[in-house]
Design a protein around this nucleic acid. Structure first.
Lengths: 232, 232
DNA sequence: CGGGGGATTGACTACACTCAAGCATAGTGG
DNA sequence: CCACTATGCTTGAGTGTAGTCAATCCCCCG
């Protein structure tokens, strides 16, 4: 599970993300770096329970928070993308309610035991990230409660594109969507078959293009209109 | 909007609630009291935006956090019951995403300007309350995403009963449900008509009894089985 | 007694689910 | 190099849960 991969520039995504929520002095960043441990690799499907002991940052790959019902139905509560923290806030730490699972092979960097935010700036940034997470939870509730399959899909694709763009993982309107349609179904509260049909409809409508795992938003205006919820 | 109502014992519900999340010394409680302002009354339907300026505790009556779509569809994100705080945590503070609305006439007690948790104990208790709130958000996502109307209803009724019991507003398995079926519909992501039919089915199945706004859980075992999500 | 808000019912529709089969692509082993 | 698999995507057919529209009932209250 331990990998000795050198940290590439793109892997500072967590700094990039944190800076969106408040100024981080270079010394704050350095102090954070000093409190981070080694880089660990997880295979797709692996539980990230270890994040509960020591909070970690996702460096590459996708994960999710999911809740499973007894009969096997599964609901994905949130997606976790590179740069996101896991286990820093209440949501991602709450053991019982939800489990964190790797959706793709991923690498993460955990904090050293006994971590706590070193500086004012850092703790404000972490709080900001938690707030953003919360806001996405509300989006998720609205999607599931009051939107059609088509609207949910449009809304989620816009969210994912926006988040990936923030960390430099989008090229224009395109991004890599490394998850099965089954995962989209579990996130959107739909069946696999209906997700497939919804995506096809969006392609026919000229809203998106899919080549393999590469997804392109072809008509942002219409997507936003379809997703309804006024996104900032 | 200002009311000069004497504070009755039941209205210390917020202390009762906070104590569930961590020990509050008598002096902590006293310090909190000292930082609370006057009691305000709101009519049903009124926005609680004022809570955003100064956090407040709900003394009596029900409120909710709701998000409205452009075309009028509305999704209730969370219920706020007596004893709950509003505006203390990220969720209930986040202006844009969601608005807090009184569902019944209610009374609330706001903190004085510049409030911040005075003691270690109080701030731990407030954090605990925020965590509980988060956990309910996840429940809500699972309900909306992966449960049937019947299951959603069972699960929500159990949640409401549990929360009301905590603050002494349940009598055995009975509690007062002061909201229209339309509100239940907006919370459960269902239509008003379907909520009505679901409730009737539950009555026919002998799971609940409704006399006016008084609701009784007649068969907790079956309700819990139906709600599936293993509740603690 | 009339009005009004909320609850209830019926008839019809439709969005999304299930079951089941077929297709495409990438690996794997002979 | 080519069957053979496996996995994920696609499609069809039929079903069902939940939605919509519209009328009616019920009860409280003025």
């Amino acid at each position: 599970m331990l990998a000795v991969v050198p940290e590439r520039p793109v892997e500072k995504a967590y700094l990039r993300r944190l800076r969106r929520f408040g100024p981080l002095l270079d010394e704050d960043a350095a102090a954070l770096e000093a409190r981070l441990g080694r880089i660990e690799a997880y295979p797709a499907g692996r539980d990230l329970d270890s994040a509960r002991a020591a909070p970690m940052f996702l460096l590459s790959g996708w994960a999710c928070l999911a809740h499973s019902l007894r009969d096997g139905r599964r609901q994905i509560v949130a997606f976790l993308l590179p740069g996101d923290g896991i286990g820093f806030d209440l949501l991602t730490r709450s053991q019982h309610a939800v489990q964190a699972v790797a959706l793709t092979p991923l690498r993460a960097r955990s904090t050293q035991p006994g971590f706590s935010p070193a500086s004012e700036g850092l703790s404000r940034a972490l709080a900001g990230a938690a707030a953003a997470q919360q806001s996405r939870l509300i989006d998720q509730i609205v999607r599931l409660g009051r939107q059609t399959a088509y609207e949910r899909m449009a809304h989620l694709l816009l969210e994912l594109h926006g988040r990936l763009a923030e960390i430099g993982e989008a090229r224009g309107e395109s991004f890599h969507l490394p998850i099965k349609q089954e995962v989209l179904a579990d996130a959107l509260g739909l069946s696999l078959v209906h997700v497939n049909r919804t995506l096809q409809q969006m392609r026919r409508d000229g809203l998106i293009d899919m080549r393999g795992a590469q997804l392109t938003l072809l008509n942002r205006a219409v997507l936003e209109a379809a997703s309804d919820q006024s996104r900032s």
